[in-house]
Design a protein around this nucleic acid. Structure first.
Lengths: 235, 235
DNA sequence: TGCGCATTGTAGCCAGGGCTACAGAATAAG
DNA sequence: CTTATTCTGTAGCCCTGGCTACAATGCGCA
């Protein structure tokens, strides 16, 4: 059966096309139901730096990422903007649409050329009503995310900055990295500024801790990308 | 229509009985489906200090809290045990059952006499398959929790310990507190030790910060319970 | 009613890391 | 290629909060 991926991602594109069909949340969904799903989804492209939606804006859509990379950020009460998380192909963006919220509580940025499948909230809901096992998949997916968040929450404040930073990078490398001869390489650049948000520390302190990590060989930096050597990965 | 709550919670009990029927996740579920739901749930009582399940144990059940209070804790790699969160009547416990996990990643403690409705994972899944809008409710509920976790994550490390501590207490008071003449009172005792985990700080530092909060009147302590005066609540 | 354990409170030392300031690299823009 | 801007690296000051140690209070239980 032909998939619509070729329509979505131009063949000469540098972004790796991911077929919706291959996303784990669609495992076991019947061909027929999948077709319906595709029918109501609207393909959208975003260039680097564009926003899928902005914090405070009215919630209208929920997205499935097909290709690219998304950064979630939030402006805190004190006015500073912090990076909360990154999302990759196969992840859902804008789940908040499914709770009672009426405004997006954060902003979603395309970090690179990104292709998504957007659904109007009502359509998405209807889809799940018609397709309970899809809902079940989603629930599993979300409880996984809750798990991750919980353990991140547990580790943000324990241990030294150096350790936290290393763990963060190792986690990102695990989720967003690709294997290279040297180790797992994070496919997008991360500024010290961003790392400082994620790890809850000052930018300068991050620079220092990072230097130590590089000196001890636990982290490698090459062409603005971080590499976590397989040997240094915990456990 | 008569509800089974009276059967679950003895009338002379000090714990406030919550009818399953009243839980938000059951809004809009038909009487008939609700009956089926009740049919497959198994009521369980826990005394203070008992565990619903322990970290590392095989996942068998998922719980809906009817009455009481649950503390979630986790043993970190370095061996220290930290408190992650508290749950109240109406919340789900053991959602991890719904992801791919096979072992509970944390331990759930009854902080007081607690009544739950337990479901075997398979039954719960089947229930959702038969009852898509229940699944939708759950998805909403979980995305709400993801939101909360995200914003907690954002604020754990920003601001002074004193601020973080106050915010934490205000949040707990909002979620688990009951209104009193003095303000919102947290219905269960919290040791400085526990607070220190939640806020990511040293026990002694918490004691000091707490003293300052009391001196400035932002927090009141009475009979081992914290009270957040309505006047000092943020926003 | 007295013993023992858990929780809370105080003190003091000192290091991690917050903060400012500036200089050099590296990218982007023109 | 030049200029502007953003990112990275270093230095130094100083304060928050980590850590140890011990005292005081409170609570449960025999």
């Amino acid at each position: 059966m032909k998939c619509s991926c070729e329509d979505f991602v131009p063949l000469n594109s540098s972004i790796s096309p991911v077929c919706l069909r291959d996303l784990t949340i669609f495992d076991g969904v019947s061909e027929e139901d999948f077709e319906r799903f595709r029918g109501i989804g609207v393909r959208k492209n975003f260039r680097e730096g564009q926003t899928l939606f902005v914090q405070g804006g009215p919630i209208t859509e929920i997205f499935v990422i097909k290709a690219g990379r998304i950064r979630l950020s939030k402006v805190m009460k004190d006015g500073t903007e912090i990076t909360l998380d990154f999302r990759k192909p196969g992840d859902l963006i804008g789940e908040e649409a499914l709770s009672r919220s009426v405004n997006y509580p954060l902003t979603a940025w395309a970090m690179e050329e990104t292709v998504t499948c957007g659904f109007r909230v009502r359509d998405f809901n209807q889809l799940i009503l018609d397709n309970p096992d899809l809902g079940l998949k989603l629930i599993g997916n979300m409880s996984q995310r809750i798990l991750t968040l919980n353990s991140r929450l547990g580790s943000v404040t324990s241990g030294t900055l150096e350790d936290r930073l290393f763990n963060l990078l190792a986690n990102i490398a695990g989720e967003h990295g690709k294997k290279t001869p040297l180790g797992y390489s994070i496919t997008f650049p991360l500024t010290h500024e961003e790392l400082s948000c994620l790890v809850g520390a000052h930018r300068v302190s991050v620079t220092k801790a990072l230097k130590r990590l590089r000196d001890t060989g636990k982290i490698i930096k090459q062409e603005r990308r971080f590499i976590v050597p397989s040997g240094t990965l915990p456990r």
